[in-house]
Design a protein around this nucleic acid. Structure first.
Length: 122
DNA sequence: CGTTTGACTACGC
DNA sequence: CGCGTAGCCAAAC
């Protein structure tokens, strides 16, 4: 089982990865967790699932404006924050300002705006 | 210091 | 494809 030796370090890596998200692109909690170097002996699948929560927890108490947290959404390609919340509206507006298109369900096409891009050559 | 919740995700129905 | 449940662990109360 994955036991984070340094939670602070994990959060720092989360912020680092989030900062690496280019403008006009979005990523998911699971992806961010996957991008972070997982400890040896831990299953990537398990790691991704668990990491997603730590990523969210890390961003929840995040107070660093230099981290583009608004580019981080859930695996459904939607803003995890409650629709109507000031944070959610700010996040969506910021993404739209960067060129990220939202669907009818307020969903973002990860195949197009998702980062890191897999299908797109980038 | 014990209890509850949570910026998630996968699986079952 | 939507809702409910299970799992994980740290932060908030």
């Amino acid at each position: 089982m994955w036991n984070p030796p340094d939670p602070d370090a994990f959060y720092a890596e989360v912020y680092e990865v989030v900062r690496q998200i280019p403008e006009g692109r979005v990523s998911t909690y699971g992806w961010v967790a996957s991008l972070i170097p997982p400890p040896e002996g831990s299953d990537p699948e398990q790691y991704r699932r668990l990491g997603a929560r730590w990523v969210g927890t890390a961003l929840r108490s995040l107070g660093d404006p230099s981290v583009p947290w608004h580019r981080v959404i859930n695996g459904q390609g939607k803003i995890s924050l409650p629709a109507g919340s000031s944070s959610a509206q700010t996040q969506r507006r910021r993404l739209q300002a960067e060129g990220v298109a939202f669907g009818a369900d307020d969903r973002v096409d990860l195949s197009q705006f998702g980062w890191p891009a897999t299908d797109e050559s980038d």
